[in-house]
Structure formats: C-alpha cells, structure tokens
Simulated scan of single mutants.
Amino acid sequence: MARVAFIGLGNMGSGMAANLAKAGHDVRAFDLSEAALEKAEKGGCLRAPSAAEAVAEVEAVVTMLPAGTHVRSVYEASVFGKAPTTAILMDCSTIDVSTARDVIAEAQAAGYNMVDAPVSGGIAAAEAGTLTFMVGGTDKAFGCAEPFLEIMGKAVIHAGGPGAGQAAKICNNMLLGASMIATCETFVLAQKLGLDPQTFFDIASQASGQNWSMTSYCPVPGVGPETPADRNYDGGFAAALMLKDLRLAMEAARSVDSYTPMGSHAEELYTRFAEALGGGGKDFSAIIKMIDDSWQSDSSAASPPPGVRLG
C-alpha cells in the first residue's frame, strides 16, 4: 500500500479520501476546514498540519480544490519541490483547461508525472467509489494514476493529453445543463397540455426524446427512479456548481472561437436561477421550479424572462 496525500476535503474530496483509506492506503489529509479534517480522520485518514507536510515522502498526491487559482497556488507553493518527484500528481478539481495545462507543464518541468482527472457522479458516487474520471496526461502519467483512481471510481477514461480531462468534463456538463433545461421545459409543457407526468415519462423514455436527465435524473417528483426532486431538490449536484461548469465551458468556447448558443443560453438561465433567484444551493434539476412558474422570490430579484412568472 502507498502513502497518499489528499488536499481538499470538501463534499467530494472527503468521500474520495475515505475510499483510498478503506483500500489500505496511508492517506495524509489536509484542508483549511477543521470540520473537514475531523471528518477525514473519522474516514480513516491521518491529519496533516499543512499541505506541504502532507506531501512529504508520499507516492501519490490527490487534490480536489474549488478553482484554478487554488490549484495553481497549492501546487506551486506546497507540492512542487516538497513532494518526491517519483510521486504521481492527480488534480481532480474541475478548473479551466488553460490552467490545467499550465500546471501540468510546470509539473513536468520540475520532473513530475501529473494528470488532470476531473470527476462526474456527485457526492453519493464519491462516497460509494463509483465516480467517473476523465483523465488528461501522458500515457506514462495515466498509467501511474490509474491504480489510485480506480479505487475511487467505476470508470477511469484516458481522454488525451494534458488538459483533455478538463475539456471532457466541461463539454459533458454543458450537454447535461442544456439537456436538463430542455427536459424540464418538456415536462412542464406536457403537463400544461394535459399529459400526466408519469405517462409522458413512460412514453418519452422509450422514444427518441430519451435522455439521461429524464430517465436517470428526472426533475419531476415521484416520476422515474429516486432523484433529488423527491427530496425537495436537496443534495445531488448544486445549481451553483452547474453554473460554475457552464461558465468554464463558455470561457473555453471563447478561447477557441466555438459557437455554443445552447450552452450560452443554459449559462444565462442558471445564472438567473442560482444567483438572481437564490437557487444555487438546490440541485441543478430544481431549475424546473423557475420554468413551471412556482419559484418564489423577493421583490429585489431580477425580472424573469418573458413567459416566466415568479409565484
């Protein structure tokens, strides 16, 4: 078994670190949050007093951080030159492609193998060890990272060179965000046209309109398998995080002059829902509450788009 540093113990990182510990690895965990450190200890990890001390004499480093600025800062200040160059570096954060490529280039220049390995699956999958990893990096780096990632996920896919994991993640989530909005719109329209939601689900899930947002993550309570919609849209994948990913996708699209009208409109709608209407803490499927006219807002909120009323 290996000694592993895990830096970033939020909702996703805590479950991932615990699964590495359950597999028998010696996990040295660090986070700025005392509560996160206590949870990591309960999950079988050892508390490290700092990120730099966590990476000392390890065979692998895993980071799960909020944004590209945090990733760059942690690696430059606490990992490069502190961790052995034999350690495989794995950043599982969802960040912009350019920062991922820059940090991996710095790692390679310093003699390290490193991958960007963002995840899909949410908190439940992080805890269950059933995440999907989209991995960018050289063949050698991927080979070094794969045994560790397999402990935390059900699928580990080599997407290509440095930054390819981030590219795959933001493209996937742009598709997910746009398809969820379309799914919400169709359920609302179907009901207003007199169709029972379960009946519409039974039809569309077996027809050409079938998609993951409908069949696996239905935004309508009581329809299809259990989803956050059945728990008042609590848990799952927060709308604020979906908005973060959509903004990363739009940033990437602008950098390569790619026309993404659906992605752009999805970003606009999630901005309104998460920020102007205060829905950022709810699951991203809760955007149906804005579309079906039932979302409540105070008078200070921005005006809804045409056709949408705020209760």
Rank of each mutant, 00 (worst) to 15 (best):
S294L: 07
A2H: 07
K289R: 15
A40W: 06
L193N: 13
I203K: 03
T138F: 00
E106A: 15
K244L: 09
G263D: 06
R28W: 12
V220Y: 00
D298S: 11
D202F: 07
E226V: 15
E38H: 05
A83T: 10
A141G: 11
Y217S: 02
V308E: 01
F284G: 00
A178D: 01
A167P: 04
E106R: 15
E38L: 11
K154L: 01
A35V: 13
E59N: 04
S216E: 14
T260E: 07
S285E: 01
A141H: 09
A105M: 00
A35E: 14
S264Q: 09
G122I: 05
C144R: 15
Y233F: 14
G161T: 09
D102C: 00
S93P: 09
V135H: 01
V58Y: 01
A48I: 09
I181G: 02
S264L: 02
G163W: 05
C45N: 05
S258M: 14
K42S: 13
V223C: 08
A17S: 13
I291F: 04
N11F: 01
G194I: 12
D139V: 11
G129H: 06
G165M: 04
A159I: 09
D245F: 10
A35L: 08
G43A: 07
I123Q: 11
T271D: 12
G15N: 10
N232H: 14
V27S: 06
A126W: 05
R247G: 14
A77H: 12
S294P: 09
G44Q: 04
A229F: 04
A141E: 11
L149A: 08
R309V: 15
V79I: 15
L193Y: 10
S299V: 11
R309F: 04
G307P: 09
A48L: 08
L277T: 10
